Simulated scan of single mutants.
Amino acid sequence: MRLGKPARVILAVVTGLILVAVYVPLFVVLVNSFSTSTSLTWPPPGFTLEWWGKAFQSAGAMEAVLTSLQVAIVATLISLVLGTLISLALQRFTFFGREAISLLIILPIALPGIITGIALNNFFRTIMGVPLSIWTVVIAHATFCIVTVFNNVIARLRRTGTSLEEASSDLGAGIWTTFRLITFPQLRSALLAGGLLAFALSFDEIIVTTFTAGSGVTTLPIFILNNMFRPNQAPIVSVIAVVLVVVSIVPIYIAQRLSGSEQQRR
């Protein structure tokens, strides 16, 4: 399909406005992390690296980073295992209720975060009688991180088909041998891309975390929210926000590159 010149101009203008609306605020946060003002006035009266040094010396910030990393890593590992198993079950086998299960797997990523948070909070505290802790946060994050792994893996399974697996079975290979030598190599890049996206999704999640974290659990997004309006903390929060953006961009960029490379090879 070819667009006329007026349509291309309109499309370019709309795209430019959207990009400006998304990235100009991020640029402002980056500039404010170097500002000499403690109240983040604009334009900045001067520039300094003082806040970067204080941010990396902040025990609370470093503890929050470590907590976020722990939650994101464990949630990603759980998502990789469960997402892969569910994808194999739904793609390789036919049974009653398969479409309904597929819908239920995808639903958590479509629900508003506040709904998921309230539901999980009630489940942990009322039904299970479990105190909120870092493990309830991990389980909560895994519920929506599974979706990213599931979508990547099941899409790959649909493209690869079953011919190589059937040939492996015909040659006498067992289930685990076939999975190790045939299925897993075909899924490797999809698993890596799904895992990176799940990690990024978990690392900067705040709404569900707010409802499922105990009083002693502070992830990096919660630390930012708690310190945003405290005196002399705004520049440090800007530094941490910049770091959070970078940490979120890197896995998404790698996952995108992996998906693009896979499509080019095909």
Rank of each mutant, 00 (worst) to 15 (best):
S261Y: 00
A234D: 05
F123T: 09
L30M: 15
F34N: 01
L181G: 02
T126H: 10
A255N: 08
Q186Y: 04
L69D: 11
M1P: 06
L40T: 05
L3C: 06
A110N: 12
K54D: 14
L103A: 14
Q233Y: 14
V31R: 01
V149Y: 03
F184G: 02
S238K: 05
P235W: 04
F179M: 03
I86S: 12
T36Y: 00
S133L: 14
P112A: 02
E99D: 13
E166Y: 14
T38R: 12
L111I: 07
E99I: 08
A100L: 14
L11F: 08
L26T: 09
I101T: 09
Q264N: 06
F203D: 09
I224G: 01
T136Q: 12
G172M: 14
A190I: 06
P44N: 05
V13W: 08
P6N: 09
A61I: 13
A213C: 05
N227G: 11
A234R: 12
S68C: 08
L157H: 02
R230K: 14
I86M: 14
F144A: 04
L49H: 00
I105A: 10
G113C: 09
R265C: 07
P251V: 05
G60A: 12
V243E: 02
R156W: 04
G214P: 03
V237H: 06
R188L: 08
E63M: 12
S39C: 07
I114E: 01
Q91E: 13
A155E: 07
F211P: 03
L90P: 15
G195Y: 07
F34R: 00
V149L: 09
T76N: 13
